[in-house]
Write a protein that binds this DNA or RNA. Structure first.
Lengths: 329, 329
DNA sequence: ATGAAAGCGCTAACAG
DNA sequence: CTGTTAGCGCTTTCAT
């Protein structure tokens, strides 16, 4: 493997000149440039980024923290991050935290030790104190889930309003007995979506019943199925269910189908996220679409700006209700 | 940000000693060690990996090349890779190639430029010539999809045998008119799975019909749906369908359901991969399970061995038929 | 327009 | 057991 020195030797110039050619500086004669480029080609030279990065003290690597790689909610966001990052010559390192502080710490260390330039955190279960402390000395952005007043810039949607619209859609279709399958209330988005659910009901004079409020530990399919099982045991069953994630909704769908009831005739279902699969289920799922690609893309831009030392503002994006078979007869 | 020199100053020792403490070498007195550790703590010192990596000429970063991050087939493999890599203090960089050579090249460059130590490629549409050339100077492993006689070590399953078993299962259930939804024949696994399909039919004296062999450009849901639409237009419809990926199978499922026919009563369906979602569909999907976690884990081990300069052998793992609702009445 | 030289932060060979 | 020192490969002043 050739290094810059050998290229300089072969081209009959100094390493400084080779470096200038490498970095497309204009101060090099065409003739010299050609000599250097020929030497580079002849030696199959590739600049060593470790050397460059040590010198410029940057790694051009961005960390993306997600609880689980298998959660399809993140895939489109990641695409947005990746495309934006790549276009600015940053690479992204996808980190699965399992919401495990030890694992998180491995990745925080990468930033502390200069192997990464910044972090986009999407883990709702993140240890927020540690993150806030790290944010004092390093560039960090929160995406989708965030902490209020943490001082960490975030990009998100209006969860309360989105949930409100989802439930309002059900109310408009004539439903009055509407259940909610929520995730753990320790998460901000869970509290916000619950608030939206309640506001929609209140607006139409419907009293929320305790037995219609379910909580799950996680957002997976099995948890939705389990919650739906409980709901189906109720004496007075709801005629509609709002689940705070598509995976939960798809679990609920499965359970309803298995019990012999029909969606949407017996029970209507609304999800949240508009993951790819929500359009593949039988019936297809009515859901709230977040602008995931855009969210990712903006998060990446914010992070890169922050790394460059600019001040960045948090931002709230629009969402959209996607009506499909699971609510329309 | 403190550096090793400042720590040495504060502790009243040389940088070499600090480095020894950092790398847990045994040749340091307890007393000195404590002095150094105190200095580290006092200065909030974190070793700079760029410096270390330049010195040791390694990056401890592994590249994982996948065509698309949203394909759930890869998630479990990635988990296997990640866990193994992490346990050996390697980090992984997930790279979405979109099967786009330009994009691939960005990532190859990372290896050429020493920002990554090796590659696990899982992209079946990879430009194999470029990969082979790169493999001559760098550590590369292929996972799942591979090229025969390329000299690049791989870990995979016996696709021919797996397809054979899937189709044999259908034959045993009494099916004789069995269609296959295959992907592009330019992929090795597609040819292998087709061979298995034909062998199962031949074994029972069934002649494969051309009209029962469908090809799709990609492995997505929509492509499966489209293929099934064609199948349903046939005069003599098959009573069973074998799709070479779960996503294709789920698309087929959806199309059959929409046409008013029943799975498995009218048409049975078998998929391939056993992605998480194959157990969430209605009906649940009979499929071939690859040992994905193990595959990933082994691929990571092979790569790390290769980086260390050991010689590694290709390996073929076992698979399993998972029987679910889509074939059992 | 080009070169000489310093130095980013670290490890490791060598000396003592 | 510890220190001195060279050097990994690069960029970037400062001269010329």
């Amino acid at each position: 493997m050739a290094n810059i020195h050998q290229v300089a030797m072969l081209a009959g110039v100094s390493v400084a000149t080779v470096s200038r050619v490498l970095n497309q500086q204009e101060t090099v004669t065409a003739k010299t440039r050609i000599k250097v480029e020929e030497a580079i080609k002849k030696l199959n030279y590739e600049p060593n980024l470790l050397g460059r990065n040590l010198r410029t003290s940057e790694s051009r690597i961005l960390l993306i923290l997600i609880p689980s790689i298998s959660n399809p909610f993140y895939t489109e966001i990641i695409k947005g991050i990746e495309t934006t990052a790549l276009s600015q010559h940053y690479n992204i390192l996808l980190c699965e935290t399992d919401s495990n502080p030890e694992r998180e710490n491995i990745y925080y260390d990468l930033v502390r030790k200069k192997m990464a330039d910044g972090i986009i955190s999407m883990d709702p279960a993140v240890n927020i104190e540690t993150l806030i402390k790290l944010a004092q000395t390093h560039s960090i952005i929160q995406c989708s889930e965030y902490a209020e007043d943490s001082g960490i810039p975030y990009v998100t949607i209006n969860n309360e309003e989105a949930a409100y619209r989802a439930v309002k859609h059900l109310v408009k279709l004539g439903h009055e007995r509407i259940a909610i399958i929520n995730s753990d209330e320790k998460f901000l988005y869970a509290r916000q979506r619950l608030a939206g659910y309640k506001r929609a009901l209140a607006e139409h004079g419907i009293n929320p019943r305790d037995s219609y409020s379910l909580y799950t530990h996680q957002l997976g399919f099995d948890y939705g199925k389990q919650a739906m099982k409980k709901i189906l045991k109720l004496e007075e069953k709801p005629t509609a269910v709002f689940a705070v994630s598509d995976l939960l909704a798809i679990g609920a769908l499965k359970e309803i189908n298995q019990s012999g009831l029909n969606v949407p005739d017996d029970i209507a279902v609304v999800g949240f996220d508009n993951i790819d699969f929500s359009n593949m289920t039988n019936p297809t799922l009515t859901t709230i679409s977040q602008p995931m690609y855009k969210m990712g893309s903006i998060a990446a831009e914010m992070l890169i700006d922050k790394i460059k030392g600019k001040t960045v503002e948090s931002i709230t994006l629009d969402h959209e209700l996607i009506t499909r078979e699971s609510t329309s007869g």
